[in-house]
Design a binder for these strands. Structure first.
Length: 520
RNA sequence: GGGCCGGUAGCUCAGCUGGUAGAGCAACGGACUUUUAAUCCGUAGGUCGCAGGUUCGAAUCCUGCCCGGCUCACCA
């Protein structure tokens, strides 16, 4: 079609020819397997350092041959010998290949002509140290394993274009080692959370992602269609009501770690599909959960940063996780910030509205009284809570699934853990009185009727379940993505999601493009 | 959705007071058996995001659109 070829296309064609030539010479350009007995990182770990000032003649590196495999990420050919770096999952190690060691035929016709930066190869050889002290594998055998057809991003500057980094995350992962580190940490955090809960007798469960009623949180759902049943269903906004049914069923400690979906804005703090851990524990209350949360953080800090580390730096700010975390009351703190009394916050609609307007809360008039209170809280209190802080005892009206606070029927036993102004955990002593739950759902319906799209859906079967009896229970949810952001010092949620949601690219030059542009 | 910033070679970036594009790396050819951002000589590579407009002339100015980043709003 197009006569002129881009440089990239030319490279691809050249390399396709190399694939054919490799075949002609009896090599499999897309090999099946390679026996490795070590990794780059393992060799560097064991033999990488040599003491400064130590005579290298005295140093003994093992005589045995090692074999490893990975991607060639740099190459320096110097006539009859060459250096290159090979990168595997664990790191990158330098290799040295000499014509006289691998044979003139292979060196000249295969290595120099048919192997490129980006190719995946297997190598075997002994270790030695170069003049400057870098641990290096002297290649006695090299086997092409996978031919790479496209040129890699630049070795020194890496890949910086954020759009490309997200769209082609694989390139980001090849070229930017710190990105691999972020996702390793993410994996570790998730693994350790499971370990923490498993060790306390929890079982991991899976509940429906496709739900006929999207309830358990205040959010707009994604809608999809279930062909087999010919009904619209929702992608879950929370697993909460299903998990509680399991408590009715007799499981006493359950957790679910998985995706939730909320059809809302995308930003540095929000991705429409995000990962949550929720756990429920029978015969416990929110006090127990606060303690457990502190223990969980200690466990995670030990695992990610090293035993005993209780202070980390996030975006230039020191965050201390020394127990106990600060505890403040929702109304008490809001009272301090607004100058209104707790009683006024609960009952004086006029004063709260006036304050909301004063603070600049948009459309304050349209909000219900307690939504205004919550807005004030989010505007005045949350941003100032930098160090880990439990905010306790929320107004009942904004917490339809939480149990009334002992001694104060206007509040519920609920806490949020706020760190760096962001909500990291949300938990309550769970409401298990079916009559009251029904009442609370009805209030939510009223809110919905007044125009609050995010008011919670009424779930009749959940009420039925509660009527069979759910034991006293405490439940908590933690947003994994935000936790990972905190632990990896990332300011954008996209940096902790392997494939963040982006608008699809239009591929012009193809028929699709025309069809698409007409379709709008 | 609003505001601000950006999109130039495969990658990282210059060029932006209008005169049709440059560097480094990567690629290709050559020299080089301890280099390490290897070095040296040579070659090739671009519908300057897309579409219009102004102009003798647009990467550069104007308008619209597409994509992205940050931010505000909503949420976890």
């Amino acid at each position: 079609m197009a006569e002129e070829k881009s440089l990239e296309q030319k490279i691809i064609e050249q390399r396709k020819e190399k694939v054919e030539k490799l075949k002609e010479l009896g090599f499999e350009p897309y090999a099946y397997k390679y026996e490795v007995n070590t990794k780059a990182g393992e060799l560097l770990e064991k033999f990488g350092r040599h003491k400064e000032g130590e005579e290298r003649e005295k140093e003994t590196l093992p005589e045995e041959e090692f074999s490893l495999a990975g991607r060639i990420v740099s190459m320096r050919i110097m006539g009859k010998a060459a250096f290159f770096h090979i990168q595997d999952e664990s790191g990158r190690i330098q290799c040295y290949i000499r014509r006289d060691a691998v044979g003139e035929e292979f060196y000249n016709k295969v290595f120099k002509k048919l192997i490129d930066i980006g190719d995946i190869v297997g190598v075997k050889g002994k270790l030695f140290r170069t003049r400057t002290g870098e641990l290096t594998l002297e290649v006695s055998e090299m086997v092409p394993l996978t031919k790479s057809l496209r040129p890699l991003p630049e070795k020194w500057h890496g890949l910086k274009d954020t759009e490309k980094r997200y769209r082609q995350r694989y390139l980001d992962l090849i070229v930017n080692p710190e990105v691999r580190e972020v996702f390793r940490t993410r994996s570790l955090i998730i693994k350790k959370i499971r370990e923490f809960l498993d060790s306390r007798g929890f079982i991991e469960v899976e509940t429906p992602v496709l739900q006929p009623i999207a309830s358990g949180a205040a959010a707009k759902p994604f809608i999809t269609h279930y062909n087999a049943l010919d009904i619209d269903v929702y992608l879950r906004i929370a697993p909460e009501l299903y998990l509680k049914r399991l408590l009715v069923g007799g499981f006493e400690r359950v957790y679910e770690l998985g995706k939730n979906f909320r059809n809302e804005g995308i930003s540095t703090r929000h991705n429409p599909e995000f990962t949550m851990i929720e756990w429920y524990m029978a015969y416990a209350d929110y006090e127990d959960l606060m303690e457990m949360t502190e223990e969980l953080f200690e466990f995670l800090l030990d695992s990610v940063f090293g035993k005993g580390v209780r202070e980390i730096e996030y975006q230039g700010t020191k965050i201390s996780f020394k127990r106990p975390f600060r505890r403040i009351s929702y109304l008490g703190e809001l009272s301090k910030k607004t100058g209104l009394t707790e009683d006024e916050l609960l009952h004086d609609e006029e004063k709260v509205l006036k304050k909301a307007k004063e603070v600049g809360i948009e459309k304050a008039e349209e909000l219900s009284h307690f939504k205004r209170v919550q807005e004030l809280f989010e505007a005045l209190v949350e941003p100032e809570l930098i160090q880990p802080t439990f905010v306790v005892d929320f107004p009942k009206a904004i917490s339809p699934l939480a149990k009334e606070k002992r001694g104060n029927p206007e509040l519920v036993e609920r806490f949020e853990l706020i760190i760096f102004g962001r909500e990291v955990a949300n938990a309550y002593t769970e409401l298990n009185n079916p009559a009251e739950q029904e009442e609370r759902f009805k209030q939510q319906l009223e809110e919905r009727a007044k125009g609050d799209e995010e008011a919670m859906e009424y779930d009749a079967d959940f009420i039925t379940a509660l009527e069979y009896g759910m034991p006293p229970t405490a439940g908590e949810g933690i947003g994994i993505d935000r936790l990972v952001m905190l632990f990896t010092n990332k300011d954008s949620i996209r940096e902790v999601l392997l494939f963040p949601q982006l608008r699809p690219e239009k591929r012009c030059g193809e028929e699709i493009c025309q069809l698409e542009s007409e379709g709008e």
